[in-house]
Amino acid sequence: MDETPVTVQAVDDVGPDAIAVTFETPAGFTAEPGQFVRVVREFEDGETEGRYYTLSSPTVADTFEVTVDVAPDGVLGPWLAGRDPGDEVTVEGPFGEDYYQGEPSVLLLAGGPGVGPAVAIAERAMDAGAEVALVYQDEAPVHEPRLAALSDAGADVLVVTDAFEDAVATLADASDQAAFVYGFAAFCGAATDALEAEGFDTDAVKVESFGPEP
Rank of each mutant, 00 (worst) to 15 (best):
P5E: 11
T7R: 15
V8Y: 04
Q9K: 14
Q9D: 12
A10G: 05
V11R: 03
D12T: 14
D13G: 14
A20D: 12
V21W: 01
V21K: 02
T22F: 01
T25L: 11
T25W: 12
P26I: 05
P26Y: 06
A27S: 10
T30I: 06
E32P: 02
Q35N: 10
F36N: 10
V37P: 00
V37S: 01
V39H: 00
E44Y: 01
E47H: 08
E49R: 12
E49W: 10
Y52P: 05
Y52C: 15
Y52D: 15
T54P: 01
T54L: 02
L55C: 09
S57N: 06
T59G: 05
T59Y: 10
V60N: 09
D62W: 08
F64W: 15
F64E: 07
V66S: 01
T67R: 06
D69S: 10
P72W: 00
D73P: 06
G77R: 00
G77V: 00
W79G: 01
W79L: 03
L80Q: 04
A81Q: 12
A81F: 08
G82T: 09
R83M: 02
E88P: 07
V91D: 00
G93W: 04
P94Q: 13
G96T: 01
Y100T: 00
Q101G: 14
G102I: 11
E103V: 05
E103N: 06
S105F: 05
L109F: 11
G111K: 03
G112H: 04
G114L: 13
A118R: 02
A118H: 03
V119I: 14
I121L: 05
R124K: 14
M126F: 06
M126G: 07
D127Q: 15
A128E: 15
A130F: 09
V132W: 00
V132N: 00
V135H: 12
D138I: 03
A140K: 13
V142S: 15
E144S: 10
P145N: 10
R146L: 10
A149Q: 13
L150P: 05
L150W: 10
S151E: 15
D152M: 09
G154L: 11
A155W: 13
A155I: 12
A155H: 11
L158S: 13
D162S: 13
D162H: 09
A163N: 15
F164V: 04
F164T: 03
E165M: 00
D166C: 02
D166N: 04
V168E: 03
T170F: 09
A172S: 11
A172I: 08
D173E: 10
D173G: 06
A174D: 08
Q177F: 13
A178D: 10
A178T: 15
A179P: 02
F180P: 02
V181F: 12
G183H: 08
F184G: 13
A185W: 07
A186C: 06
A186D: 15
C188H: 08
A190K: 12
A191C: 08
E196A: 15
E196I: 02
A197N: 11
A197Q: 11
E198G: 14
E198Q: 15
D201I: 13
T202D: 09
D203W: 07
D203E: 15
A204P: 06
V205I: 05
V205Y: 04
K206A: 03
E208V: 11
P212S: 14
P212V: 13
P212I: 12
P214G: 13
P214W: 12
